[in-house]
Amino acid sequence: MSEERDKTAGMPSSGDTVGTAGEAPKETAGTVEGKEQSGQEQASANAEPAAPAAPSSAEASAAPVVDPEREAKLKAAAEAREARAAAKAKAESEAVPEEPKAPSPKQPILDAAVGLIRTEVAEDAVEEAYINELNGHMPVIVVKGDRWSEVAALMKNHAALGCNYLRNVTGVDCETHMEAVYHLVSLESKQDYAIKIKTDREAPSVASATPIWATANWNEREIYDLLGINFPGHPDMRRIMMPDDWVGHPLRKDYEPLDPEV
């Protein structure tokens, strides 16, 4: 079942657009039930390629009564899925005893930066520091919320770090907390860093980096607008993409859109 779904997802044929058009509104429902229904729809779309009308959930739930052949396909797909899950679990359990990974080449840079922060700002300013191997071994430092302004000033002004260019500010809604990720780079040494600040979900607030890098201005406004993270110290905290009188923060995971049928 999922194989067929993947096949249609990979090929840009007209059947695919039907499948994705049918899938997307279903997926925004977001529940597991919605996904299963869309799975059924995929099967019905595959079984009847000549009828590319937008399938509705009523149609999908009425279909099993009519089509016993599809029942068999569903069952086969479910079995295949279980088999694969079992194989993966087995592989994972076998993969546990591995030799420890070689230290990353950027580890000394990370240690130097963390050391500087610990000495210059505060001993407890750094919550976590690790190397992101997937991303070209980028040093990632998780900084404590109330120390962020000082750490930011240090990252920009200290000669050894010299991160004068703020590339990107991203806000993330992890379901238990919210994060702001700042990507910095030093134009002279070409060394990049990612700094994360975690904040809680009820009243998220991260000190604004606008006084230090002017780039942060609109980026933080966008994060405020779409995710609701407040940035005290920002000169002009108001919505940027949504209309000024919009209620809610659209990019949050628990956002209820105004008209869910769309």
């Binding site: 999922s2 993947d6 992101n132 997937l134 991303n135 980028m138 590339r167 990107n168 990720v181 990507h183 990612a194």
Partner: peptide, 10 residues
Amino acid sequence: VIRPPAGEVY
């Protein structure tokens, strides 16, 4: 299925 491993990249 294009399923990147858990993690982040920029």
